[in-house]
């Protein structure tokens, strides 16, 4: 671990100023991603700005019905929040399907969105990795890539975005509120994470030092019927091989509206408008679900060890839709 200094920011303004002064500073929230990567020497910040004291720990309902979640709200608190459980069950389920109880107690909403990939080559400084060291090459492309993405990949990087929570949030069209050198702004979550393209090292559209202050989830009454299904190599405490977040608005057996997002298969939390389009106006049922799944994975690119993920993701989505129909409550 490289030497670094440690500062606690009591207000967002202080945090922003500290970050502006030191381009190699990093915000420290739960630390479950950052400290881990510091030990591995993947992250080498010169300064940690502890933001856990910031007053961003509330979950409130806004006048327009949206739910505002402070960036410092812990993953376990969010998962067990009554409004979340009632209005957005898929979000609660996604959170609880992630990591372990201990980690969720530490992890924050903002940190979860910005967690880094689990690609083992990214985490091993002895190996080339375009994301860690631009231009060195992608070790995973022709290496151990069983866990890697099949959607949104490039020849420069095929790493998955590992978050479960973010999959539910992209399905819900959440918005990310930030404060930065240029003031405050709101970023639709679908625009937060960037596809790797030729620059996998640039993962988000946040400016350097930009601070996430909250996530806002719009009112979406039919999301009260929603579900998150996660498939993994063991029963708990493992990242997704494939996952699906679905919400369906059914009207007399016909899909009026739907939200679909996939995890474990995309380089970013993967909203699938193609799948949603395939569901719209169609009768609920196996044929429609399968068509949606085909549409969702239409552009998938397999690598040597992860071809199974394409069919697995299709079946995971079909499973989520089928189960949602069977257990509407």
């Amino acid at each position: 671990m490289h030497p670094f200094s440690f500062t606690t920011a009591e207000t967002a303004a202080v945090a922003l100023r500290l970050a502006a002064e030191d381009p190699r500073a990093r915000y420290l929230a739960g630390g479950t991603t950052l400290v881990d990567l510091m030990k591995l020497e993947v992250e080498r910040p010169t300064q940690l700005i502890d933001i856990t004291a910031l007053p961003l720990t509330e979950v409130t309902t806004l006048p327009n019905g949206a739910l505002r979640v402070g960036a410092m709200v812990r993953n376990s608190d969010l998962a067990h929040n009554e409004d979340v459980r009632r209005r957005y069950p898929m979000l609660s389920q996604a959170l609880l399907a992630g990591a372990s109880g201990q980690l969720r107690n530490m992890a924050t909403t903002g940190g979860n969105l910005l967690q880094r990939t689990r690609c083992p080559y990214f985490r091993d400084t002895a190996m080339p990795c375009n994301k860690r060291e631009p231009g060195t090459g992608c070790s995973a492309l022709h290496g151990e890539n069983r866990g890697h993405a099949v959607l949104g990949t490039s020849e420069a990087c095929i790493a998955t975005h590992p978050s479960d929570m973010a999959v539910a949030l992209v399905a819900l069209d959440a918005a990310v509120r930030t404060a930065g050198p240029q003031g405050e702004r709101v970023i639709p979550i679908a625009e937060l994470h960037r596809l790797p393209g030729g620059h996998p090292e640039i993962e988000t559209t946040l400016a350097p030092g930009e601070l996430i202050t909250a996530v806002e989830i719009p009112a979406l009454p039919f999301a009260a019927r929603s579900l998150y299904v996660k498939v993994r190599d063991r029963a708990s405490y493992a990242f997704a091989l494939a996952s699906a977040a679905v919400a369906v608005d059914l009207d007399k057996g016909v899909v009026r509206d739907a939200r679909v997002a996939l995890g474990g298969v995309g380089t970013v939390p993967w909203r699938s408008r193609a799948a949603e389009d395939a569901l719209h106006g169609k009768p609920a049922g196996a044929a429609t679900y399968r068509a949606a799944a085909e549409a969702a994975l239409a552009g998938a690119v397999p690598r040597e060890h992860n071809a199974f993920k394409i069919e697995l993701a299709r079946r995971t989505l079909v499973r989520a839709l089928t189960r949602l129909e069977a257990n509407p409550a």
Partner: peptide, 15 residues
């Protein structure tokens, strides 16, 4: 692992 139960899914899996 589950991928080994899906032989038809492995397009060119080495194992």
């Amino acid at each position: 692992t589950l991928d080994k139960l899906f032989p038809e899914m492995s397009i060119h899996s080495s194992n």
